[in-house]
Amino acid sequence: MHSIYARVNNVSALLSTCTMCLLAAIALSSFLFTASPQGSLDIASVQVVPGNARRYRNKQQEFAFVNFNITADLTPLFNWNTKQLFLYVGAEYTNRQGAANDVVIWDKIIRRKEDANLTITGRNKYVFREHSSSFKKAPPAHYTLKYNLMPYVGALTYGEIARTTEPVPFPESREIS
């Protein structure tokens, strides 16, 4: 500490310790915010349409199209440590082979608190196909709206905002007229 360098060393060493403690405190402060917002997810319609698989031109495959309405107020999830919110709609069903499927058919990233009050009429963003290429004997599916909260510092947290009360059956496949 006799020279300038010794004092620079002393200040920066303590500063890095303080910064680490501050970051840890910020990460831990996230646990004080225990908002679990509720919303609603209504499935307006489900259509199943036959078509050709994109990669194998001769293979017949069925595509499901899901229209849904979302209303949710997610502003309570925005605290000082919230960087952004990843929101996704999933279809949950157990197919004939007994495999439990959780297919993400739509998602959205919310970056600002002002954008967190949602009223959305949407359709699946991602192609919804069955592994067996047909929805014919697939049991009705539950649809869920979930979020993944990404903080600036700390752990990712997950949560469910809404879930269909009754499972929604897949209709017979038919061509769009």
């Binding site: 500490m1 004092r7 002393n10 200040v11 303590l14 500063l15 303080c18």
Partner: peptide
């Protein structure tokens, strides 16, 4: 100086 550093940073 050491004392000031410690008190002020914390």
């Amino acid at each position: 100086a050491e004392y000031i550093t410690r008190v002020a940073l914390i």
